[in-house]
Design a protein around this nucleic acid. Structure first.
Lengths: 147, 147
DNA sequence: TAAAAAAATCTTGAAAATCAAAGTATTTCT
DNA sequence: AGAAATACTTTGATTTTCAAGATTTTTTTA
């Protein structure tokens, strides 16, 4: 059977497209000084209560040193603010500036449109199968990772 | 309906996992000097007839200069061989060495197992719907990209 | 056919992303 | 009080990337 080849190619093609488009969707007129990496950091910071460096670094699976460098750049560009904790003066709280929040929402919007675009093309049953298949995939990945 | 949230989260989670695991699956005892990037290049070279630099660069969406640097490293590590064309001496043909072919097959094997893992979880009809859904997704991405 | 233009690749210089290890400031433990 | 732990930054090195310039070879043109 050639379901294997078909599925493999479909997945690989999909994966590559998503990577490409995410990148292009991020850098627009309005946010042209932002890199792909910057956007991931902005996404990890989020629009909720401020987070400290260690928490964000763990979320992104990078060292705190690496994150410091990314933050320096984002602060300089005006997307992020640093605030030393007054209770524990070792801790630095990170939050998004107005500009940062705008970028965050721009990215979230892209995701929303993407999912919408997908859902429009699928009927109820297809959608169900897709979600199920993705979960299977996800479980399979997690199992492999444990070994 | 919360199909939106479900699908979005499933996709995001899947993507992060794929990224992580692809990376970990590549670097094994046998191929411990290979990076994620190296593997993508090896994959693009393939085990068919040799390809020139421009072709591979286009396939990977990088400049030829970038590819030259990656190739220098792969040649030095013994995964790739360079061969100047005798018809057109500007052209350099790239092909995988024995070691390179082994790495290629190792990676292909990972993909095969991944697809197998998914397919085991789905019946014939579901599989068909999945492939169709993925193609829809893929088309949507291509449309967006054109704008 | 000689000169100009085009093509394929490589080199160079600069920026971004990354880590490990060392350094600084602060808090907690003994 | 002194030692150990914690949170973060700095430093030095490596990798990946691009744009622009350089080199070699082929193709086009006058």
């Amino acid at each position: 059977m050639d379901s294997y080849g078909t599925l493999n190619e479909a997945l690989v093609s999909l994966f590559n497209d998503v990577m490409d488009i995410e990148q292009k969707a991020i850098i627009t007129e309005q946010f042209k000084d932002i890199t792909n990496n910057d956007m991931h950091v902005i996404d990890a910071i989020g629009i909720g209560t401020p987070k400290n460096m260690s928490t964000i670094a763990k979320e992104l699976s990078v060292t705190v040193g690496t994150l410091t460098i990314a933050m320096n750049s984002l602060v300089k560009k005006g997307y992020v603010t640093r605030q030393r904790s007054s209770e524990d003066r070792r801790v630095v709280y990170i939050s998004l500036s107005d500009k940062g929040r705008k970028a965050y929402k721009h990215h979230a919007d892209f995701h929303r449109k993407m999912i919408q675009g997908i859902m429009e093309e699928l009927d109820e049953q297809e959608l169900e199968v897709l979600v199920k298949a993705i979960h299977h995939l996800d479980n399979w990945f997690r199992e492999v990772q444990q070994k």
